[in-house]
Design a binder for these strands. Structure first.
Lengths: 184, 184
DNA sequence: ACTACTGTACCGTCCGGACGGTATTGTCAA
DNA sequence: TTGACAATACCGTCCGGACGGTACAGTAGT
């Protein structure tokens, strides 16, 4: 059944990124991922024919997630893209084990696997800028969010949850995103 | 002599971070690092008794570099810290192979190795804020710089050199760092 | 004589990946 | 409807290679 196959696939992907976060992006072995996902190594290899393919899927999954989020905010008024991007980042932050840790796993193995990320991120930034009332400030916010996340990915909690919330509020305030009630 | 020993040590550290950047943070083997640094494997292990110790040194080296830079800007007037932090980031960006890629190598192996980074970065942020005329905006800039660098580390060139320069100029402008001639 | 290495040989472990097997679930002709 | 077959969704094992680390003998500079 296609549904079951897809479920297992997602379980594996999630297991991989969880492991990447916990034991280090360079330490995810197929055995460990299989065990974590509750499938055998053979089963894992059935879904992803090689480790490289698994890592590529991890990257693709992340990118598609962001893109679909931005798509949903298309034509929803000025700054809607940026707004969506911010709340996406916040949601990812809430659930420990952000999807982005899969990116690090891919990077650890082979930097080339991240080639699509550059293109996509550039596209995200362009879309956010095009939709922003103050593109320059929007860029700053875009990079600030990345910075916040990168420190998160490095496992160093520079800001705690409350400070982060305050920071985001302040950022949104400067962006003029306070009044607009864009349903998230 | 301590001088020569120190030179070799630095050569090894630099080789390790260069390799981390080129072949992926998870792929630096002791053999490869030794070859790149132009020393034998025995020589490498003479300086760093284990891979873990090498990675710890990589992290420490990075942190000390940043800290000494901030120290130099202490008591150099308002916003001097932030200014120093910005130009440090820019310089690191110019030389390909930023020291920060050593952090990724450490992370790939064991997230725990980055424990000191969290403490230090928090300290950096606090010092920058304490010295800034607009602490809130300084925080935003701090994270934006991290975001810029993280995308750089991920090997995705979201902004090219010129765009980055423009971005930094704009950021400095908003921070009111235009007029002050703080010697870098 | 000591420091700072080089070079070689080697060991144990871990990991990616190939492979052979298997149970379950459709699919379709007679 | 049933028997024949095949595709799907796995499991368990095994192997070759890479890697971290050890040991040790030698050596050039100071």
């Amino acid at each position: 059944m296609t549904q079951k196959k897809n479920d297992t696939r997602q379980k594996i992907l999630q297991a991989a990124s969880a492991l990447a976060r916990e034991s280090g992006p360079g330490n995810i072995s197929l055995d460990a991922v299989a065990a974590r996902a509750g499938v055998s190594k053979g089963g894992l290899l059935y879904h992803f024919a090689s480790k490289k393919i698994l890592l590529e899927a991890l990257v693709e999954d992340f990118l598609i997630g962001v893109e679909s989020e931005l798509d949903a905010a298309e034509d929803a008024g000025p700054n809607a893209m940026l707004d969506a991007y911010i709340s996406l980042n916040m949601r990812e932050r809430l659930c420990r084990d952000p999807a982005a840790s899969g990116l690090l796993a891919a990077l650890a193995k082979d930097p080339q696997l991240l080639a699509p990320v550059g293109r996509y991120e550039r596209g995200f930034l362009d879309r956010i800028r095009a939709n922003a009332t103050d593109p320059e400030l929007a860029s700053i916010a875009f990079f600030a969010l990345h910075g916040l996340r990168s420190l998160e990915l490095l496992n160093c909690r520079v800001l705690d949850d409350e400070e982060t919330a305050r920071f985001i509020t302040a950022l949104r305030h400067r962006l003029g995103l306070d009044e607009d009630v864009n349903a998230s």
